[in-house]
Structure formats: C-alpha cells, structure tokens
Design a protein around this nucleic acid. Structure first.
Length: 230
DNA sequence: AAGATACGCAACCGCTGCGGA
DNA sequence: CTCCGCAGCGGTTGCGTATCT
C-alpha cells in the first residue's frame, strides 16, 4: 500500500518479474507483486509483463500490412484495442492504441477531419484502404503475402467494407463474420476456415513490404485530401 | 548552441465485469 | 443478494527524445 513505486521499470525489477512469471505463469498479479517483493501494484506488473517482458512481444516497425489491418479492424470494432491486438501477433493493445492516436488521428487532423466523422471514415473506406491494398499487392510476392481469408484483398472493398462503419454494438456485423462476436473466432472466412488455417502470422511480417515508407506519406495525404474535398 | 516545441511511447488511472465468499 | 477483490480494458498523462527556430 504505502511505499509503492511508480514510473519506469528498472532492469532489476524486470528481472524479478520475468523470473517469477517464467516459473509460476501469468495471472494472480497481486500475488506476483507480494511474492517478489516488488513495490508495484499487481496492475503495474501485469502491464509490464504484457507490454514488454512477455516472450514474442514485438515493438516498433509496424508493417504496412499491420497498418492496413489495424485500419480495417478499427473500422469494424472501433476502439476495442485488445480485440484488434488479437489479430496482430506480438502486438499489444497499448501499441495499437498509441499507433492510432499518434498516426491516424494526426492525419485526420491534417485533413481537418474528426477521426470519427463520417467523412473521414468514408474516405478511409472508399479511397485510402483500397489504395493501400493495391500498393501491397503490387509490391508483394503473390503467395506469401496473401492476407487471411477474412480480409481477402481481392475483394476487400466489397467484403470488408460493404458493411456500415463499425458500431461494436451493432448486430449487423459483416456477413463473413460468424454470429458469435466474442472472440478471435469472430473472424471466420466465408469458406469456414479460420485465422489460423492456411494463413499464419507470416502475412503480417511482410516480406520486404515493411521497408516501405509508412502509409501516411505526403503523397497519400494529398491524394486523400483531393478525394475528400472534390 | 540553446531553448522551444512536437512527437512517440511507457506507464498510470478510473471504470467495468466477473467470480467467490 | 450483496460485497469485495481481482483482472482486464480504454483513456489519459508524463517523460525522454527528436526536430525546429
């Protein structure tokens, strides 16, 4: 209670937390704090583990494919970051949230749009995303970079974006999404195959495409601005 | 070179939902 | 049924660093 430490974690604290979780597994975060002698709240331990210490966690260099997927999933679910993160292996909800706030919202501001406005959403849906898909297909090898079936790029504008812009509470979620709306199983391909079947996370790792500049180039912004205000 | 400003990320805070007593 | 503690989520803040003037 008293004497709680806040702020950045030290390597010693990381080491204590890592050893404990490696041995005992995740969960029971308040016990972790007590047992290790860390003067941190259970919440803080959990967050540090999930966002930094957890094996396979990936930070920085969000690939073009990942950016595209974030846009698509956000269009479907809104600010449900943890849900979106489930589809980006190794990425945390915190990182995706930061990406959205620092990149996407910034660009919306440049376009004098509210990121939640219909105008921005429509531009994203009809102009920006198809354009990005086009770029990805143009720069990727045909097989290795196919996205998961649920966002089949060949039909992405019709499959993913035919639906209304995401209200997470809207029951009329995309037709290619199964009725259950609680989990990763949500995103099920039309043919019944799931995320893990046939398409692994390698799609997200981008074979060479991640060396491309970010989605948010001046060129794209100009293009979008033209489309928006035509 | 130095101060100001903008940016990106890590961490904190408050709220909600859930399960057990 | 209600209370309590915990885990998880999303919004927000604060700090270190990069860039600009």
């Amino acid at each position: 209670m008293e004497d709680l430490k806040k702020g950045p974690w030290t390597p010693e604290e990381d080491s204590l937390l890592f050893s404990y979780v490696s041995i005992h597994g995740e969960g029971h975060w308040n016990s972790v704090a007590r047992s290790t002698g860390l003067k941190r709240t259970g919440k803080s331990c959990r967050l540090r583990w999930l966002n930094y210490l957890r094996p396979n966690v990936r930070r920085g260099n969000i690939t073009l494919q990942e950016q595209l997927l974030i846009l698509q999933l956000h269009s479907r679910w809104g600010n449900r970051w943890s849900k979106i993160a489930q589809f980006l292996p190794g990425r945390t909800d915190n990182e995706i949230k930061n990406y959205w706030r620092t990149r996407v919202q910034k660009q919306a501001k440049q376009l004098n749009c509210d990121v939640n406005s219909q105008r921005f959403r429509d531009a994203m849906r009809h102009v920006w995303i198809p354009r990005m898909v086009e770029r990805i297909t143009a720069t990727s090898s045909p097989l290795s970079s196919l996205p998961p079936p649920c966002i089949d790029i060949s039909t992405s504008t019709s499959v993913v974006f035919e639906t209304t812009w995401a209200n997470p509470n809207d029951n009329n979620f995309p037709a290619n999404v199964s009725a259950s709306s609680s989990d990763v199983s949500d995103l099920t391909a039309v043919d019944g195959s799931g995320w893990d079947e046939g398409f692994g996370s390698e799609w997200l790792e981008g074979d060479g495409v991640d060396s491309l500049e970010s989605l948010w180039t001046e060129e794209n912004i100009c293009f979008l601005r033209q489309q928006l205000f035509d």
